[in-house]
Every structure is written in C-alpha cells, then in structure tokens.
Design a protein around this nucleic acid. Structure first.
Lengths: 103, 103
DNA sequence: TTAAAGTATGTCAAATCTGATATATATTCA
DNA sequence: TGAATATATATCAGATTTGACATACTTTAA
C-alpha cells in the first residue's frame, strides 16, 4: 500500500507542494518521503556540481547507472542508507547532510 | 570486512573518541558509523523522554523489543532507514533529525 | 538478597534492498 | 535531422535487513 502510494506520487511529477497535500499520507509517511526526496535531490545536485555522469558516480559507489538513477529520483526501491552512503562517497560531511535535510 | 569492523567497534564500548581514531576506517565509513550512532542515541534519548520502555516503543513501530535494543545500540544489522522511521514515529520532525545529526 | 521489569544478544525465515542487465526515453550538438 | 551521450524504467537473483522468538544479562525496588 505504502509502496504503491509512493509510486503514484513519483509518477505525478512532484511539481506542486508536499506529499501530504496530495494523498492521504500519515505525518510519518510524508515526513519520511520528504526526507528521502531532499536527500535524493541533494545527491543529484552534488553529482552535477562535481561534473559527474551517473555512470561515473556508479563507479565511485560500486553500483550501476540504473541504481544511481533510482537514487536520484527517490525510487521506492532505494533506502536512505544508500543515498547517504553515496553522499558521503562524494565527500559531503554529516553537517552538510543535516543542512540538506533542513533545506 | 566493514561489518566485522563495526562489530569490533561496538564490542569495544565506544567510550573514548571517534571511530576513526580507533581503527583504520575510511572517512566515508567513519562518517557513516558516526551518523548512525548519533541517530541511535537520539532515539534512545527520545524514547526515555517519552517515558517509554523498549517493549512499548516496539509496539508503536510494529517491531520487537529485541530490534529496538539493536536500533538503540547501533547494531550493524539495523539500517538508518529504520532508525529514522522510528524517530518519526515518536513525533520528531525532519528539522529535529537534522539537529540530531549536527549535534 | 531476590523477584520483577527492562535491556541485550543470537538466530533464522521472510521481506526488502541491491547490483546488474536489458531496454526505453531524453538530451546534446554537429 | 540523427547519432552519440545521458538518464529512466523493468526485472530478477543474490545480498542485506526485518520481526519474532529464545534466552541472557542488568537494573530496580522491596
């Protein structure tokens, strides 16, 4: 159920407002999704700042281009753990991660 | 290998300083472990503030006492995802999570 | 003390996440 | 245009994480 909701969310494009306005997510669910989206967006931003392609980032984190794409789009199949590991692999600090979460 | 290191770390008790001083962890590994420990400690703190036992928290997050214990000790078998979900289940905000990470 | 309540640790089957592959779609630029 | 490069999506076997259980250890309070 949750998984399906997230999928729908993603398919809608996310252009207008928060998850919660949109579907009947609990506070907890929407906070989790928004956190994930912030980290995902942070990863993409960082990768581009470092002028890397998804293929290059994949090599750095010992994964595949397709997984990087999923990391950056906040796909339901990726964990916050892996997003955070990827951010750290690009040299970000824990404080930077905190900033990413706070906006 | 990484797993084993974390296990050793945990067994040593963590009483003096950071992970990195201790064993030959990469910056990335030590940042990840320290992040996890901060979140774990935050969870324990929050649970105690709310005067809950591990059994009660387990019920709230639909898990078991033993897993809560592992969450709070930063056991290698728990993901940051689950720690974060638990924090959110106790009503913390994303900004609070950021603060937890930053100290 | 000791019993009760609380917490920690080990194990395991089931659930979830992962890298890899294939392939589709989008972007860039000559 | 169109072909090269970049990114997205689907699928799946193998790896990791999960809740649950059993049991051990620790703390509390009488």
């Amino acid at each position: 159920m949750k998984k399906q909701k997230r999928k729908i969310l993603k398919n809608k494009g996310w252009n207008f407002g928060s998850a919660k306005e949109f579907l009947d997510l609990s506070d907890e669910e929407s906070a989790y999704i928004e956190l994930k989206i912030k980290l995902s967006a942070g990863l993409r931003k960082l990768r581009k700042e470092q002028k890397l392609t998804q293929v290059e980032l994949a090599k750095i984190i010992k994964s595949s281009q397709s997984r990087v794409a999923k990391l950056e789009t906040g796909d339901p199949s990726v964990s916050i753990d892996l997003i955070i590991r990827s951010l750290l692999a690009l040299g970000i600090t824990n404080k930077d991660i905190a900033r990413t979460i706070s906006y």
